[in-house]
């Protein structure tokens, strides 16, 4: 059976709330994240940094570890006078990297989301439920996904993912 790996990562994460259609906010976010503001539900990535669309007034900026506090300050400086919230959330969230050929099935067994490639194309962020807790995931390339959950439930989520891997593929879709 082809291997799936689950790895816990600790990137920097900055929550940005405000009017995502505002030019000032889009420019500030892009400058800090090094990637354009994504369209609805999309992930806009440049390597390990980028911006995730989380809701009509919420974006999550991914950064290298240790860079979030500085980025949140830079955002607030750029957005002086523009209604917004920029907050370093790195310690509030946990990130997992899932790699392997049938990772769509690893997630499909745990979530009500439709993981079929047509329903969840690459780089679409799906916020959903993983067993009993909220999570967001996106597939970056076939065979590589990232998943974000609250740090307080990270051990639970890691257990879920590992168990789903141990149980093997279902064969519904590769």
């Amino acid at each position: 059976m082809a291997e799936i790996t689950v790895t816990r990562r600790t990137p920097g994460m900055v929550l940005l709330r405000g009017d995502l259609s505002s030019d000032a906010l889009r420019e500030a976010a892009s400058a800090v994240a090094g990637a354009p503001m994504p369209e609805r539900r999309q992930a806009s990535l440049s390597g390990d940094t980028g911006i995730l669309w989380m809701s009509p007034d919420e974006a999550l900026i991914l950064l290298p570890e240790g860079r979030a506090a500085e980025a949140a300050r830079a955002l607030s400086q750029r957005l002086e006078g523009v209604h917004h919230l920029a907050l370093d959330l790195s310690d509030a969230r946990a990130v997992f990297e899932i790699e392997g050929p049938w990772l769509r099935e690893v997630l499909a067994k745990l979530s009500p989301a439709d993981l079929h490639p047509e329903a969840l194309p690459l780089l679409e962020v799906r916020r959903t439920r993983l067993a009993q807790v909220p999570a967001a995931f996106w597939i970056e390339a076939e065979g590589r996904a990232r998943l974000i959950c609250f740090r307080s439930v990270a051990d639970y989520v890691e257990g879920l993912l590992r168990r789903s891997v141990e149980d093997g593929p279902v064969g519904l879709f590769a």
């Binding site: 539900r41 009509p56 009500p112 916020r127 439920r129």
Partner: peptide
């Protein structure tokens, strides 16, 4: 209607 996700009852 906000994010366009077809959400299952258990996500709501």
């Amino acid at each position: 209607p906000y994010c366009g996700v077809a959400a299952d009852e258990t996500e709501l």
